[in-house]
Amino acid sequence: KNTPPRAAAPAAEAMEGLDTTPALAFEKDAFDLTVEDVYDISYVIGRDLLKINSAGEEVSELQFKIVRVLEMFEALVNRHNLTLEELKMERDNLKSELDRRLSEGSEQGTMTIGSNKMVVDLKDPNRPRFTLQELKDVLQERNQLKAQLLVAQEQLQLYKSGILPQSEPAAVEADLQPVPPAPCTTPKEEKTTIRKLCDLKISGAA
């Protein structure tokens, strides 16, 4: 930081005409500048100041100010590049940490992690997503409809064969049941599908 810009270097004059590359620093993008570029710029400005200085003493005050501005410029570019470097390192660290965690996760797949937890891939179209109760309800309704279909088919068969008498009250098979209903029997289980629909209950759970 205390290095004076090359503008103060006495050898500046000797370089003139031989080395034009320092001037290229003026053409660079401001955010791509390195401290070396700042030194090149200082060199070029210092060289030009020396030309003016040989003409008169009035510009010496201006010369110091320019040197000061170049020093500030140097500090800013330095700081900018350091910050940029730090951010890049932090980004890379986070990236590798993310990769590490992702690969750990994929190794485990849908296996359990911790106590009775399961990892579910939300992008998997076959992931589990319905509750046991929903499955229970759907299965019960499926089986009920199947039973009704079987009964209907049977009745149809009887009609066709002419066995079926015209109208007789539907008999009840309850007395044949060997099992009394369990205590937790609820009216819900006795609802027909139509009733369920009328109740507008999506899941059918009462």
Binding site: Q140, A147, A170, A174, L176, E190
Partner: peptide, 24 residues
């Protein structure tokens, strides 16, 4: 016992019992 008639009862959960047709 007396023979019974149709109705395949399929209630589940608390038991496959035949009370459905009577109740509803």
């Amino acid at each position: 016992k007396e023979p019974n008639s149709e109705n395949v009862d399929i209630s589940s959960g608390s038991g496959v019992t035949g009370w459905k047709s009577k109740c509803c």
